[in-house]
Nucleic acid binder design. Structure first.
Length: 150
DNA sequence: GCCAACGTTGGC
DNA sequence: GCCAACGTTGGC
């Protein structure tokens, strides 16, 4: 079982949106590193849902992977903002997973707090200039964060 | 809104 | 295959 952090801008898709939908495809990833991480995801992996580009960047909830990587059909939809000419149903370039809502944190774990926590040193999210939208967590970091949530 | 960091593109 | 130019991300 692996642990992942996935970033979303709350204006586009928030933890409340996921809560309402119960489960949702994670489409629109157009970065090779992030795509490759999604291909590594397994059923039941835990996802830390992170709000980025907002007032208080923070981990705001938990989700789990409930469908493993499959082609992202928005990539060949000409009307989609995620359209990519080089991706086709026969030769898909981009993939997505489905995730399922687990919980919304009563108190988000803010980026600021995490940056000040020595236990989390080495966590890629906290490195300066880290822009990757999907980031793996070590077991140690993941379990530490989960413990902090309760 | 600024800008540093990073990824991608394309000319050579 | 190098690298400059450009676009995007995301914290501040």
């Amino acid at each position: 079982m692996n642990y992942w952090l996935m970033k979303s801008e709350p204006d586009a898709f928030s933890i409340d949106d996921l809560k309402n939908l119960k489960t949702s495809p994670w489409d629109g990833v157009r970065n090779y590193q992030a795509r490759n991480f999604m291909k590594e995801m397994k059923m039941g992996d835990t996802v830390f849902f992170y709000h980025s580009s907002c007032k208080v960047p923070a981990i705001v909830g938990l989700a789990s992977v409930n469908k493993e990587a499959y082609p992202d059909n928005t990539s060949w939809d000409e009307t989609s903002p995620y359209f990519d000419l080089k991706s086709t149903p026969d030769n898909p370039r981009w993939f997505m997973v489905d995730i399922e809502f687990i919980s919304k944190l009563p108190t988000p774990l803010t980026l600021k707090d995490m940056k000040n926590d020595p236990v989390l040193s080495g966590f890629k999210l906290l490195q300066k200039g880290s822009r990757l939208s999907i980031i793996p967590l070590s077991d140690e970091h993941a379990q530490y964060l989960i413990a902090k949530m309760t």
